[in-house]
Design a binder for these strands. Structure first.
Lengths: 189, 189
DNA sequence: CGAGGAATTGATTTCCATCAATGACGGTGG
DNA sequence: CCACCGTCATTGATGGAAATCAATTCCTCG
């Protein structure tokens, strides 16, 4: 699943699996704008013909599409739909603003802690978590691209987290060992 | 003009002057999320009771407020309004995503160049610019807080821009000396 | 004239990037 | 079954970008 920057009449919903939104810079670097989990709607595709980012799958995924035109037609009859879409978009803006603050002001440790906390919340909404072990199908490269660091440095920080007994990410599972400390590091305000 | 995080029934529009949206972190640092120019609507206030950021004036300003409830009532009768609001929100998301990429991947020079280009565009929309001189009522502290740098480092970069004949920001005026170079530095993709 | 905020500049430190080498897997094909 | 790869993670050594600390100058304004 690789969408580019071309116009499309579809609105996308992720039904199962993980994906991520990203932009590719000319110098070869990329910035991951956000991860997509089951149930996530590509809200931009609700209002725009073409996306300003690309999308890629992290795992095997199932995607559902709807015709934007049809949604718009229904929205004209049922305001409720439009409101929810707008609400959804406002929520996205809030998340984006948080991310801006994180990237602008947080250190490497804090950024990664923040990412973990954010993903933990998303995962918790969708499934029951036992023993503070969260399935996390990310390579260190993805973490790096999401928080603006190099994979090498991400590796070092994860080692630090293990040494300090904060969290352990291995084999696609994030085990949270000291939630308090993780929150102290990664929480805005 | 300092709004906090409290609920309010109003939607805000900036009629004249400059302002900025920001979040204050517990460690005393702050991140400026964006600058507000005449005509800008606080789109978040369209959909949310309370803002997740604060707002402050940079210059003398005039603000107009409308009741959210009234706008919602009108929107129920005239879809057009709601669509424009949603469009507006989508545009905001796009800008935020750009900012995320800038903060995640750009160097200090590139970040500041990007900020200048962004503000130049906003200013150009609102008034005629002569001799590539843009009124810019920012302290270096504001630039620093907007792009995630220290004021000291911003000062150094601005010196570099002057030496290299790229741009000169002094006395509230940004003079662009080499637009090409500025774009080369500050343009995504 | 004096005072205080803003900008500049230098010296030093810290954090993260970069470069490079190594080991651990997992798949593939002989 | 095992030698061979490619990808990923780890670790060390080094370099560079930006932060921090500190001193000085420049304004503006009382």
């Amino acid at each position: 699943m690789v969408l580019a920057n071309q116009p499309s009449p579809d609105v996308y919903v992720l039904c199962s699996g993980w994906g991520f939104r990203f932009v590719q810079l000319p110098n070869g670097r990329r910035q991951i704008l956000g991860f997509l989990l089951p149930g996530d709607v590509l809200t931009t595709s609700l209002f725009r013909e073409s996306l300003h980012f690309s999308v890629k799958a992290l795992t095997a995924i199932q995607v559902s599409t709807m015709k934007r035109a049809e949604i718009h037609a229904r929205a004209a009859l049922n305001l409720q739909i439009l409101w929810e879409a707008a609400e959804c978009c406002a929520a996205e803006t809030l998340a984006a603003d948080n991310m801006i603050a994180v990237l602008g002001q947080f250190s490497a440790e804090e950024r990664i802690a923040h990412l973990f906390l954010h993903l933990m919340k998303e995962i918790s909404i969708r499934s029951v978590i036992r023993d503070a072990r969260y399935p996390l199908p990310l390579r260190q490269q993805h973490i790096a691209d999401a928080v603006g660091l190099t994979p090498v440095h991400v590796s070092r920080i994860l080692s630090v987290f293990r040494e300090r007994g904060i969290a352990d990410l291995s084999n696609g599972v994030l085990e949270v060992l000291n939630l308090r400390e993780l929150q102290r590091l990664g929480t805005l305000n």
